[in-house]
Amino acid sequence: MWNRFKTWFYQMSSPPHFFEKIKGWIKWSGFIGLTLLVVGIVWGLGIAPADYQQGNSFRIIYIHVPAAGAAMSAYIMLAIWGLIYLVWKIKMVDIFTQALIPFGAVLCAIALLTGGLWGIPTWGIAFVADARILSTALLLFLFIGLFLIRSQVQPLERAQKISSIVAIVGVVNIPVIKYSVEWVATLHQGATFTLTEKPKMPPEMYLPLLCTVLGVYFLMFAWTMIQARWICLQRDSGKRWVNQWLEAQSKEKSS
């Protein structure tokens, strides 16, 4: 078992092998993710009962929470991959990092914007200088910073090193976001899901949320792998397997 895992791991760390083998995973997780997202959104928008305090504005939760949760998880992954890259210099890990950064940034922006839109009817103001909001804004700047480092710093090795270090250092922001609603007085409501307690919502409200949360995670995996495949091609450009792929693609198109 261990040996089989080891061979799988070594094979997957070679870009041409990964490029072929990951296709099925992308298809399945993309399909599952889209299904869960659509089911969760229809359920959350049309079937879940309105909140007794917030009315229908609470339905924003079905995209706000998945986006915020996935953005934080994405950043934790970036930090872990950064550490792995600094220690073992595994090329594929760095490709994953580059693939995930833009998606994480977009999710974080969605979390902030939908939070603001939810804040207007609920708090009477879109953004306040609040611990949760400020730390999430910092997360967005970290994502943007990582993106800029990778697009501006030359050569690639330097960009990889700097972005790994920034990702690792910035991860202290994640517990700040997570516990900001418990440590300091804030307008933001507490967590809906925790591992240790029962959800503070009835099932007809939290089950659709569970669907969209899982859906966004599946889609994040699928999209990151799609991007990773493209980055594999671009980094290996000029190599034989890339040339073969390019020619096969152009033949497919013309036939």
């Binding site: 009315g55 229908n56 914007l113 839109l117």
Partner: peptide, 14 residues
């Protein structure tokens, strides 16, 4: 969406 259509739909739009 009650009185909240603007906020809910623009969130999903975003």
């Amino acid at each position: 969406m009650g009185k909240h259509g603007l906020y809910v739909w623009s969130s999903y739009g975003v």
